[in-house]
């Protein structure tokens, strides 16, 4: 079992997304430490991209703040390298295809492995294009996480059968960001996933409260929360890590 799949072995998983370098790299490190300490089972570290087409405003703005603050891909590797000395909690990068491709796919992925990263989530890399990075991910033992969306329907089986690590189930149409409710029939999609694979499945996009987290976790293997955390970081800046910790605890307790 890969370290990412291991995140699901102690009950329902809570996955925290944090944009790296917003407002600065020290705050990101502290926020990740607090999230781990308070029960996060996996950390999704966002390497900022100038034009994140799958993100809503909250994470778009986090990306801009991080890039304006001088965040780079090399600094993200250094952060993972440092934190890997402190914890066995799985880390995956969430970033866009160009960040990987432009760096040089082989160089990027070998640095990921060397730093102690466990996988990647690339929102603009659908099943049809995964060969772009998959052979190299396999070479370095990294999980290339697949996404399933409410519109996937007849594609679910194909994606699920080849999934690695865990499946990222996108809860609703549209971009990332908090929503007041989620109307997709998550249970039906999870049932279809279950018919095709045993690997765990976490729900993300729009989950912001313990109540929503509990509801989504009850029909899946875990939840992924990003915008709600980045809102806390936007509001409290350098003082946000403790608040992120409190929030993670409330979410983990709820599921």
């Amino acid at each position: 079992m890969s370290r990412t799949a291991g995140a699901f072995k102690n009950g329902k998983a809570f996955i925290a997304f944090i944009t790296c370098g917003d407002p600065d790299i020290e705050t990101t490190k502290e926020a990740i430490r607090e999230a781990v300490k308070n029960g996060a089972d996996l950390i999704e570290i966002g390497i900022p991209f100038s034009d994140p087409t799958a993100e809503g405003l909250v994470i778009q703005e986090a990306n801009i703040r991080a890039l304006s603050g001088g965040m780079t891909t090399d600094k993200a590797f250094a952060l993972v390298r440092e934190l890997r000395q402190e914890t066995e909690t799985p880390f995956v990068f969430m970033t866009y295809a160009n960040v990987v491709y432009s760096y040089g796919t082989n160089g990027f992925l070998s640095n990921c492995a060397e730093a102690g990263l466990d996988g990647l989530i690339i929102p603009d890399l659908p099943y049809e294009e995964k060969e772009e990075f998959l052979p190299c991910c396999e070479e370095y033992g990294l999980d290339l996480i697949s996404l399933i969306a409410p519109t996937s329907s007849d594609r679910i089986a194909m994606i699920a059968r080849e999934a690695m690590g865990f499946l990222y189930l996108v809860s609703s149409l549209g971009v990332t960001g908090t929503r007041s409710e989620i109307n997709t029939d998550i249970e039906a999609i999870v049932r279809e996933i279950r018919r095709n694979t045993d690997i765990p499945c976490a729900v993300g996009f729009g989950i912001s409260t313990p109540e929503m987290a509990a509801k989504m976790a009850s029909v899946s293997d875990g939840v992924i929360v990003g915008s709600a955390i980045m809102k806390i970081i936007a509001a409290y800046g350098k003082n946000s890590p403790a608040k992120v910790g409190e929030f993670v605890k409330s979410m983990k307790d709820a599921i």
């Binding site: 087409t53 799958a54 295809a97 929102p123 603009d124 890399l125 659908p126 099943y127 049809e128 294009e129 772009e132 697949s146 996404l147 399933i148 969306a149 409410p150 519109t151 996937s152 329907s153 007849d154 594609r155 994606i159 996108v170 149409l173 549209g174």
Partner: peptide
């Protein structure tokens, strides 16, 4: 190179 949501 687009999100899964748009593939169909």
């Amino acid at each position: 190179y687009i999100p899964e949501t748009l593939m169909n």
